[in-house]
Design a protein around this nucleic acid. Sequence first.
RNA 1: GCCGAUGUAGCUCAGCCGGCAGAGCAGCUGUUUCGUAAACAGCAGGUCAAGGGUUCGAAUCCCUUCAUCGGCUCCA
Length: 631
Amino acid sequence: MLCRIVESEVAHERSRHYRMPRRRFRDSMTGAIDMIAAVASDDIQIDASDPHEQELARMRHSAAHVMAEAVQEMFPGAKFAIGPAIENGFYYDFDLPRPLTPDDLSAIEERMHEHVAAAEPFLRAEVSRASALEIFADQPYKLEIINDLPEDAPISTYRQGSFLDLCRGPHVEDTSRIGAFKLLNVAGAYWRGDENRPMLQRVYGTSWPTQKELEDYLYRLEEARKRDHRRIGRELGLFTFSEDVGPGIPLFFPKGEMVRHLMESYVRETQTRYGYQHVWTGHLVKEDLYRRSGHLEHYSDVMFPVMEDEEQRFRLKPMNCPSHMTLFNAQLHSYRELPLRFAEFATLYRYEKSGELFGLMRVRSMQMNDAHIYCTEEQFEQEFMAVIDLYRYYFEVFAIDKFVMRLSTHHRKGLGKKYIDNERLWLKTEEMVRRAMDNGGVPYVEAPDEAAFYGPKIDVQIWSAIGREFTLATNQVDFAVPARFDLVYTNREGKEETPLCIHRAPLSTHERMIGFLIEHFAGAFPVWLAPQQVRVIPITNDHNGYAAQLAQQLQAAGVRAEADLSSERMNAKIRDAQLMKTPYMLVVGDQEMANNTVSLRKRNGERVNSMDVGAFHALIKEKIESRALTL
RNA sequence: GCCGAUGUAGCUCAGCCGGCAGAGCAGCUGUUUCGUAAACAGCAGGUCAAGGGUUCGAAUCCCUUCAUCGGCUCCA
């Protein structure tokens, strides 16, 4: 839920949630809007220009009011914050005398149904600022919103039944029009998203025009949960966590490690082709290096605490940049060598807050698909776009089509605090990135005040099965840190110049990438990535020898194959291979043995009977080499 | 980190108004030898997250800690 375009009170508020303002979509980007619409299938954003979406949002926002009405009846002292429509539903934030329980939710829902049955009309009224302040005198959050409104802004209220709310609207005509809804859960949420302000109770609900659509949505939710990488990771024996080892530190079983390894080899091969050189810079770094880079100042809250011996203070490496800068500096460089591209599958450790950990997607020990590109200003655009091209190449291989590219820029107010204090360079670099993206015809949205401390960045945002948003790829321009490290190269005139640095991680961390791929493929990896590619299934014990021989031949050809020689029945073996999402099952019995064939059963249910063994070898070899997405 | 919820066998869960720790699946053993998603039988498996408290007696009630889950905040 990146964006809440349809908001009620919050629309006045310009909250920090408002990250993807539609008006910022680059008009010059033909197709940008279409691209966004195409990816906006679920949990991405509300399209404010779509009348159907607007109608849904109006209904959902009205449902939020009805919920507030019910809550007010049950908790007379309740304080109300905001209650916007969101993707698939709505929420309302309350300040209540006690925490809500699941029982409360059903009670609230019941009352909501009563109000719906009563068909209470939504009545709008415009009020003066003075009377608004009076009406909401005992509602501190509403008062804050009113006080933050621009002087000349019209102030309106909506009333339905006994509930009166500060609200810009619009609403449906009466409460009977809010359709089918269900309250989903209650969660804590900071007032105005600020962790220094009070924590409110947020009740989430979903709402749809018809009961059928509601049920469909709940079904989709349930299906999405089945794709959750934490669940599939356990079911397929890919990875686990242990309280004994520690939170946020995933342990990979052989199968999970196989996927990691395959991905890593593929990436190493690809980026070597793209002109990267691989380096290695270890696990620990003296703290002083991070002081010099500026990371200590901007980043220390995600670093593990200091490790100290008598003389030195060390930190577990949370990022690579300073190490790569040091590596660059250890040799003299000529302009002829640039661009120089240092890549590393870096082992990093970040002390993520406990509540932020999330399966493989957010961990404390990780391996980043990292690289730093040192180049001249003239080379920048081409290098930057080469990175974007690399993203797109990877995304095609993995069939990743649901993502949004986001340009994060600085904000003036953060200069010298959140950001390096040099506005001229900020504006210049941001313009360079915009130009590169525009010239390359790459659609993107802008996110003000989301940049890295050393420069603007392009992030590729993706969504987990349960709808959480994550950054997959990142491509960051750094105009600050090279100078701090006195990085130089000798230019054509024999003078020293500071290179630009592009930080890039097109496939995130191996952990997040694997977590994402598990969900993306629902555990059914393409053949080249599948930890086990073939399961040979003998029909009876008499066929064990033939099955073992087939498996061995495949292994010799570099295929990850295994014969299931257990005493289970054939049907059980098929079921087992099927549940493990093994791409190919080779069922063999008397017929196959006699003719040196196999009966191929694909994971998707397709069957090819009496297939020549050589033909199967050719098939799987082709699928692996082409990294095919089909079976 | 914050708000709320939840921790019982490898997994999914029952038991929880205090009174002998249970089921299904998985595992092991045996029987079965079967043509495309679960053969049958037996056996084994738990300091009920950890620590403290209340009680004659605690998986069950209370407190603390840890972990996980749903959000918020933050992020690759």
